[in-house]
């Protein structure tokens, strides 16, 4: 757990340091590919949530499989 926390802190520090001295390099008018529906990690939330459930019920691992902010209070 300590190793993971250090890795997380290092990643955050690196990202924050990098962002503070740089300008956004992908302009809004350059994001048509990113806005394409095929670029969504999970196109249908109800379907993706079900597959997470299928795997979690049969595996020991849990967590960090959703989008940013996904999850809930019960595994």
């Amino acid at each position: 757990m300590q190793r993971l926390n250090k890795l997380l802190a290092l990643t955050l520090f690196t990202l924050c340091s990098a962002c503070s001295s740089m300008e956004p390099w992908v302009k809004p008018y350059e994001r048509d590919h990113l806005a394409d529906p095929i670029m969504q990690f999970d196109a249908a939330p109800v379907s993706a949530a079900y597959m997470h459930h299928v795997y979690q019920a049969r595996e020991g691992a849990r967590g960090a499989e959703g989008g940013t902010g996904g999850g809930c209070g019960c595994n």
């Binding site: 969504q40 990690f41 999970d42 939330p45 109800v46 993706a48 949530a49 079900y50 997470h52 459930h53 979690q56 019920a57 849990r62 959703g66 989008g67 940013t68 902010g69 996904g70 999850g71 809930c72 209070g73 019960c74 595994n75």
Partner: peptide, 16 residues
């Protein structure tokens, strides 16, 4: 059941 609750909650709050 527990995992189902987790998965369904993802539906409500997952966002990119």
């Amino acid at each position: 059941l527990r995992l189902l609750a987790a998965a369904t909650a993802c539906v409500a709050c997952a966002s990119q």
